[in-house]
Nucleic acid binder design. Structure first.
Length: 569
RNA sequence: UGGGGCGUAGCCAAGCGGUAAGGCAUCGGGUUUUGAUCCCGUGUACCGCAGGUUCGAAUCCUGCCGCCCCAGCCA
């Protein structure tokens, strides 16, 4: 950073706490529950928690909030670790679990019981719900609320000892059943659950609830700032109640910020899960998924994700950010670093009638037009080439700068060609173009400084490498699929389109995951999962900005408007 | 209808009583063997609305409106 002006309200608070001497060092934590994969929303939290300590020389814990066995799995803890590491953050020795503190959390619970601040309730779950009241009506006390300390302690110990079945007893904090804040109406602290835990096995049959476990874990680790999302704002009074009553050595402060929502994407874990379970996508790392694993496989650089959330900012306002913002970050981080290559997605055969049969010229092409240091590679040029179907139009509009009958175009890094003849099949489809090349216009030779308006990409047919290229688009057609009654009704049927492409030979050696730009098309990478020597598979990371496509779209729109809306201006 | 939050341009977002930064998008233009990149330029923002305090308010006060969250023995 160029100056020490905090970028957002949380960094401002942290800055002030450091300045005032309240803290010498900042300690934060990223506390995912290992019950699913991390997504874009989490990137924000990860970058914030690790970011503030990176900036101030503090420490951040990666803590698994594993207090609900049965829903959690080690598969997820490994994936989460990998995702955080991939994003570029290091927790050092600070990898912990809420379950590491089960004994101490339990001791805190006994303490509350001993001080008459918690009791064992024998009401059923349904009864507790009834007693809780509603948003507008106060709740009423449980008949078990006034049990003696001795009885409560005995009951709690017997809960731990396994004398009760699931749901039979629950430990509750004794706060205020009439509180306007429902979280304070005697919240549950411990429930009985005879389920093996992924880390502690069958050592426990009672498990602490989130609010209690989280507050205590934060205190035990000496977290100075416990950063979480807005929906926990109502829990802060409870968080502070625990701290007030138990007076741990460290007193963390909870601060809430708004979630990051991306337009046209889903971030509900349950729904993401359904996409996978119902095979709507190929898995948690399907390149269309908003998961970190999905975006990584798609080819988004970690730096782009970090840049994106930094630009989005940390505030308390609900956000629904446009996709264009993320794509901009992706393009920006790829633009200067990705090598340029040529590939034809929808091939159209071109035959250069005046080019010697059997001749192969090696054309020198720059790996990056703006950076000579990135070097060059040789691209074979022959009589038979593939060009993009979209780059030819029989009846082209005025501003179409590509190939048309009788027209000229430059083949990138090669010659200028002219279209002499259009070959069609019985149905009238264009199947082949007969063109002639101008030997005087070979790229870089300077023998001719003739200019043509358009330049198109191409691949020599004989040396072309075949590949499956997967073209991805947004998974949903609704801006906020989270809000749809059924997300299945707003799925984008074209979120994945496959093309049988022709690649220049240099692409055969590309390592999986390495991003390259297919000139004029976008950024692509070899898929890390499905690619094989026998069947190359590429993913489209993101398209290039395309002002021609924009022009076309605008033309279409104005045409539609003129044709279909006679009344409304 | 109880409680907790939030409202600055299409989307983000600075601003912290002295007269509305920036990014993305948009729209123009220039360079270009990627219609890319790059470079210039482009916004009458009634600062949710209405009052009030003040020489002066996006910033302070009051009232209203809109949106989000909360009634798991989930996190």
């Amino acid at each position: 950073m160029t100056d020490d002006t905090p970028r957002d309200f949380i960094r401002q608070i942290i800055h002030d706490d450091l300045e005032s001497g309240k803290h010498d060092q900042i300690v934060t934590r990223f506390p995912p529950e290992p019950n699913g994969y991390l997504h874009v929303g989490h990137v924000m939290s990860i970058c914030l928690n690790f970011g503030v300590t990176e900036e101030t020389g503090g420490q951040t814990y990666l803590r698994f909030d594993d207090t609900n066995p049965g829903k959690e799995d080690v598969e997820y803890v490994q994936a989460i670790e990998e995702d955080v590491r991939w994003l570029g953050f290091d927790w050092g020795q600070r990898l912990t679990h809420a379950s590491d503190y089960f004994e101490r959390i339990y001791a805190a619970a006994e303490q509350l019981v001993e001080r008459g601040l918690a009791y064992v309730d024998s009401l059923s779950a349904e009864e507790i719900r009834e007693y809780r009241g509603t948003l507008t009506e106060p709740g009423k006390n449980s008949p078990y609320r006034e049990r003696s300390v001795e009885e409560n302690l005995d009951l709690l110990r017997r809960m731990r000892a396994g004398e009760f079945a699931d749901g039979e007893q629950v430990l509750r904090a004794k706060i205020d059943m009439a509180s306007p804040n429902i979280n304070l109406r005697d919240p549950a602290l411990y429930r009985v659950r005879h389920v093996a835990h992924q880390a502690t096995g069958d050592q426990w049959c009672i498990y602490p609830m989130y609010d209690f476990a989280h507050t205590m874990s934060d205190a035990f680790e000496g977290i100075t700032h416990s950063l979480c999302t807005l929906e926990f704002e109502d829990h802060r009074p409870l968080y502070n109640w625990f701290l007030d009553q138990l007076q741990p050595q460290h007193r963390p402060r909870q601060i809430e910020f708004s979630r990051l929502n991306l337009a046209y994407t889903l971030t509900s874990k349950r729904k993401l899960n359904a996409l996978v379970a119902e095979n709507i996508v190929s898995g948690w790392n399907d390149p269309r998924m908003p998961t970190i694993a999905g975006m990584r496989r798609r080819g988004y650089p970690a730096s782009a994700l970090r840049d994106f959330v930094t630009r989005a900012g940390v505030t308390k306002k609900d956000k629904l950010i446009e996709m264009g913002m993320l794509e901009n970050s992706v393009r920006e981080s790829l633009g200067d670093t990705a090598m340029r290559r040529m590939a034809v997605l929808r091939p159209l055969k071109v035959i250069l009638s005046n080019y010697p049969e059997g001749q192969v010229e090696m054309m020198t092409a720059m790996n990056h037009p703006n950076d000579p240091d990135m070097g060059t590679r040789d691209v074979p040029f022959t009589r038979e080439l593939w060009i993009e179907q979209d780059d030819f139009m029989e009846e082209a509009p005025r501003k179409f700068f590509r190939l048309k009958p009788g027209g000229e175009v430059r083949l990138r890094s090669a010659y200028i060609i002219q279209c002499d003849e259009v070959i069609k099949d019985e149905q009238g489809n264009v199947v082949e173009l007969h063109c002639s090349y101008d030997p005087d216009t070979r790229s870089g030779t300077g023998s001719s400084d003739r200019k043509v308006k358009g330049t198109i990409h191409w691949v020599s047919a004989a040396q072309a490498v075949d590949a499956e290229v997967r073209l991805y688009d947004r998974l949903f057609t609704a801006v906020n699929p989270n809000k749809a009654d059924d997300f299945r009704t707003v799925l984008n049927p074209d979120s994945l389109v496959t093309a049988n492409a022709k690649l220049e030979p240099a692409l055969a050696e590309l390592a999986p995951g390495t991003p390259v730009q297919f000139e004029r098309l976008g950024y692509f990478c070899v898929d890390t999962q499905d690619d094989a020597a026998s069947a190359r598979v590429f993913n489209r990371i993101v398209t290039l900005r395309d002002s021609w496509a924009k022009l076309e779209r605008q033309a279409l729109e104005s045409e539609n408007q003129a044709g279909t809306s006679p009344s409304r201006k």
